[in-house]
């Protein structure tokens, strides 16, 4: 219906240019490095037939808006987080069960498992977007003003900013704190004003997003795995030749592998930066302390997620985690 408007790009771009939008700023950070890897891989493997143009720093919009653009075909590829993607594909929330993954490598293995591949296919079927890979967006942890969190009981009565996603609100509630859903842009401001006492994000986001300048304490308690999904517009992807599709798919796997490693490094790298540059007092939760958090949060949140996405996905991911742990730790 819109063909009449004749959208002719002036710059005469090649048909195989990939516009890739993502949220993190240009610089030496895991997300930017991973997407750059993708660009280099695809451009060199395709002999320059495919060019990749990066739009970092949310220039094109928020993760949710970029996902919309990918769905509509205004953008070829993007890297939304689970929170932004849940509106397009609810079952993605199954990954957000607190303390589901004992460690990052377990999560990587689940991403590669039958379950992981099955969910990528399911996303492609249900949304029309080609889901190419999952990658790790760091474990989420609490940062607070005024009071260090060691055990769940420390959270009683605190007001915690969460993403505008019911899963996280449920989790914060389970810890006895009251969740305040505020958009990302307002979060630091709300913290500054004392509207909330804390927030939860991966350490890299606490550091780069400005929360590090406001909070006094950070607890690396790693309650939920943050997930990224590499997505492409379905029609565009299907219009590529088989070999081009393979290059893009392989490039996406490389992106995921790079981000997985660097995000895991980021958990301690950025914790350290928070401590050294921002003067934040950092506490690394012991396995025993994490067990306490797990007891409080896992069941209620899992029940909530089951009520949202059904038994099937939740059971399957739990099974995939079991299998991964067995193959890794025997």
């Amino acid at each position: 219906m819109v063909a009449g408007f004749g959208i002719m790009p002036l710059q005469g771009w090649a048909e195989t240019q990939i516009k890739f939008g993502f949220e993190m700023f240009k610089g030496d950070n895991p997300e930017y490095n991973a997407v750059s890897r993708f660009k280099e891989y695809v451009e060199s493997k395709s002999n320059g037939e495919i060019s990749v143009r990066l739009f970092p720093g949310g220039q094109l919009g928020t993760a949710r808006e970029m996902t919309e653009m990918v769905q509509q075909g205004s953008l070829e590829m993007s890297l939304p987080s689970d929170g932004a993607f849940a509106g397009f594909y609810e079952p993605i929330q199954a990954w957000s069960i607190p303390y589901l993954f004992r460690s990052a490598p377990v999560a990587w293995q689940v991403m590669q498992s039958d379950f992981g591949r099955g969910m990528l296919d399911d996303i492609t079927r249900k949304t029309g977007m080609e889901a190419l890979a999952f990658s790790e967006n760091g474990f989420r942890s609490f940062a607070t003003t005024g009071k260090q969190i060691i055990e769940p009981s420390d959270m009683e009565g605190l007001k915690i900013r969460t993403m505008e996603s019911p899963v996280y609100m449920e989790m914060v509630k389970a810890l006895g704190a009251s969740p305040t859903p505020i958009s990302g842009a307002e979060a630091v401001m709300a913290l500054k004003q004392g509207v909330v006492d804390g927030l939860e994000s991966p350490p890299a986001v606490h550091y780069t997003g400005g929360a590090g300048d406001v909070v006094d304490y950070f607890t690396l308690n790693e309650h939920v795995l943050g997930l990224h999904i590499v997505i492409a517009n379905g029609d565009w992807f299907n219009s590529l030749s088989a070999s081009q599709q393979q290059i893009v798919t392989d490039g996406s796997k490389l992106l995921a592998a790079t981000e997985n490693v660097q995000k895991t490094e980021g958990d301690w790298k950025y914790s350290k930066l928070l401590e050294e540059e921002k003067g934040v007092e950092v506490h690394v939760s012991t396995p025993e302390e994490k067990e306490l958090f797990k007891e409080k949060t896992q069941d209620p949140v899992r029940k909530y997620i089951v009520s949202q996405v059904g038994e099937e996905f939740v059971n399957e991911i739990m099974k995939a985690v079991d299998e991964a742990e067995q193959s890794m730790y025997n």
């Binding site: 819109v2 408007f5 919309e68 769905q71 509509q72 509106g87 249900k126 993403m163 996603s165």
Partner: peptide, 25 residues
């Protein structure tokens, strides 16, 4: 332009729901 492209955008977001309220976008 708002009518034509807005319609397309609205239609392509039939399945997307808002994060907190679950209202279809």
């Amino acid at each position: 332009v708002l009518v034509f492209y807005g319609w397309d955008t609205a239609m392509s977001n039939r399945a997307q729901t808002a994060a907190a309220s679950g209202i279809p976008m």
